[in-house]
């Protein structure tokens, strides 16, 4: 990827790590045990998956629906000699039941803005439909299936997405959501929801 035009192309196709990615990686790294198997959904550049794989001994798989993201995540991991399997897939749907001790997800969460619509991979990385919750809800519909009985989800949410509505949707699917960490930024407050199966 020496060509500058190619490089620019990549940056419009794959979401690059920002404050939200860092917050999610920090919480995940602190919580994951070395014997855990972890899935990072919507991995983008592979930043969160890479941090977990390099800072813990957990075995990490990364997935994304975007083929450019899958390639970039794989290239970045190989460059840094991080052991990481990358799978192109729709959220948790191509994984076996009761497989992961932890699942991390920094989802597309901005409500759709028609004036700014671009219809490309970056738009899909940022926006979650009218409410901002379409992809989050699709994720919550299947994630319990792949969690081990004591497994935990770390989901990044924003006040722009309506955190209460996300927690409510999780509760309807028999999942318990608690705020593990919060941080305020100029236009939004970000929270990491820790989601577990209700016992």
């Amino acid at each position: 990827m020496g060509d500058l035009a190619d490089q620019r192309g990549m940056e419009t196709a794959v979401y690059q790590p920002a404050e939200d990615s860092k917050l999610l990686a920090d919480v995940a790294v602190e919580s994951v045990d070395d014997s855990d198997r972890v899935l990072d959904v919507g991995t983008g550049s592979g930043y969160v998956a890479g941090r977990i794989a390099s800072e813990t001994a957990a075995s990490v798989v990364a997935s994304d629906v975007n083929p450019h993201a899958c390639r970039q995540a794989r290239d970045n991991a190989r460059e840094e000699a991080i052991s990481l399997d990358v799978v192109r897939g729709d959220c948790t749907r191509p994984f076996d039941a009761e497989t992961f001790d932890a699942v991390t997800f920094n989802p597309p969460y901005l409500p759709r803005d028609e004036a700014a619509e671009r219809d490309d991979w970056m738009e899909r990385a940022l926006t979650g439909g009218e409410t901002g919750r379409a992809v989050i809800e699709s994720f919550l519909d299947d994630v319990a299936r792949v969690l081990t009985p004591e497994g935990v989800v770390f989901l990044l949410v924003s006040t722009l997405t309506d955190i209460e509505a996300v927690a409510g949707y999780a509760a309807e699917r028999n999942l318990a959501a608690e705020t593990a960490r919060e941080e305020s930024f100029p236009f939004e407050r970000l929270a990491i929801l820790e989601i577990t199966k209700k016992h």
Binding site: P67, R71, V87, R88, D90
Partner: peptide, 15 residues
């Protein structure tokens, strides 16, 4: 392809 399995269902694979 290139070490990455594409496990999207067939109807989501187009892009």
């Amino acid at each position: 392809e290139d070490g990455i399995p594409n496990l999207l269902p067939p109807d989501m694979r187009e892009a």
